[in-house]
């Protein structure tokens, strides 16, 4: 793993001056992952969403590396095509035989967990040499904070409203990382913008792996989470410390809890309420009449935590 000093000397492939909000976790995730990706040329494909619209406003671009946006649900299929083109052109001698190029497909949770799941599953199954990165901010932020299958239970969103008859999103989050791991990909991991070293190391492993790799990174959205723009990293850290977002990796089928999460087995997890409290989207959960719902959310977190521990062989 590259040291912090080495990382700071690498070129930043996402330029400043993009139009993402202050405190947006997506750009932090991109920077940490692309730094970890190493120094080989990198081609990026990005799904429609906040990251795409804010970094590629014609005639400007924030990408100092080849970049393609196609549509919302197909960043994995698009990069499949790019990677296939690379292989064919190299086979045909149009690209030097020793030339190394890395491929990264990116999508938000909407573009990944929901509308792009089929395209992602297909690309992972076919074994394209790419790293798919989902920046999970837990809703369709670009279109105005509508719920996705990554939105946490109880969260307010503009299509899972809070009122007399409903307290935010009724369903719990889909466990996408497990689903992709079940494809038998070369590498799958869950990371968070709050743990840069862990995330950059995971990126390094994902890009080093031959074949498809997947990273699901929790990326705070101050606008959608109704949180302070200068608290993004802190809140993401709470997601890890409460066990809401366990950090783990699956390398060649082998599940392993990452250090920061593993330490919690002994040290103990904070109550999930500490992650929910600084976010306005969960405000209603702290009303006395929602105590049972809050307890249910804690029970869900405990259950998922136990599941991940089990997969990782932890007791």
């Amino acid at each position: 793993m590259a040291t912090l000093k080495e990382l700071t000397h690498r070129e930043d492939r996402l330029a400043g001056g993009h139009r993402l909000c202050a405190g947006c976790g997506a750009s932090i995730a991109m920077r940490q992952i692309m730094l970890g990706a190493g120094t080989d040329p990198l081609v990026v494909g990005c799904a429609t969403g906040c990251l795409e619209v804010s970094t590629s406003i014609y005639p400007y671009t924030s990408w100092k590396t080849p970049f393609i946006h196609n549509a919302f649900e197909n960043s994995a299929a698009t990069v499949s095509g790019v990677e296939a083109a690379f292989k064919a052109l190299q086979r045909d001698g149009k690209i030097a035989a020793d030339k190394k190029v890395k491929f990264m497909a990116v999508g938000g949770d909407g573009g990944t967990y929901d509308i792009g799941l089929q395209s992602l599953s297909g690309a992972m199954e076919r074994g394209h040499d790419m790293v798919y990165v989902c920046y999970d901010n837990g809703a369709y932020m670009n279109t105005g904070i509508q719920r996705s299958s990554a939105t946490p239970k109880g969260a307010w969103a503009t299509t899972s409203e809070v009122g007399k008859a409903q307290q935010g999103k009724p369903q719990k989050r889909k466990d996408l990382t497990s689903i992709i791991a079940a494809h038998g990909v070369a590498y799958a991991a869950q990371g968070s913008i709050s743990h840069w070293k862990d995330l950059a190391t995971k990126a390094e492993k994902a890009f080093a792996a031959e074949g498809p790799a997947f990273i699901n990174v929790l990326a705070t959205c101050p606008r959608g989470w109704r949180s302070a723009y200068n608290k993004s990293v802190e809140i993401a850290k709470l997601a890890v410390q409460t066990g809401y977002w366990p950090l783990f990796e699956v390398e060649a089928g082998e599940w392993k809890m990452s250090t920061a999460s593993r330490a919690l087995i002994k040290a103990g997890r904070k109550p999930v309420a500490e992650f929910l409290k600084p976010q306005g989207r969960f405000k209603h959960l702290f009303a006395p009449e929602n105590a049972a719902l809050l307890a249910e959310i804690q029970a869900d977190v405990d259950e998922y935590w136990a599941y991940v521990m089990g997969r990782c062989g932890e007791e």
């Binding site: 393609i68 549509a71 499949s80 095509g81 790019v82 083109a85 089929q118 297909g122």
Partner: peptide, 17 residues
């Protein structure tokens, strides 16, 4: 590919490449 939507999506990626 796993669908025609992905077929043309991959064609777009490959052609742009």
């Amino acid at each position: 590919v796993e669908s025609e939507h992905s077929a043309m999506s991959a064609c777009v990626g490959a052609s742009a490449a």
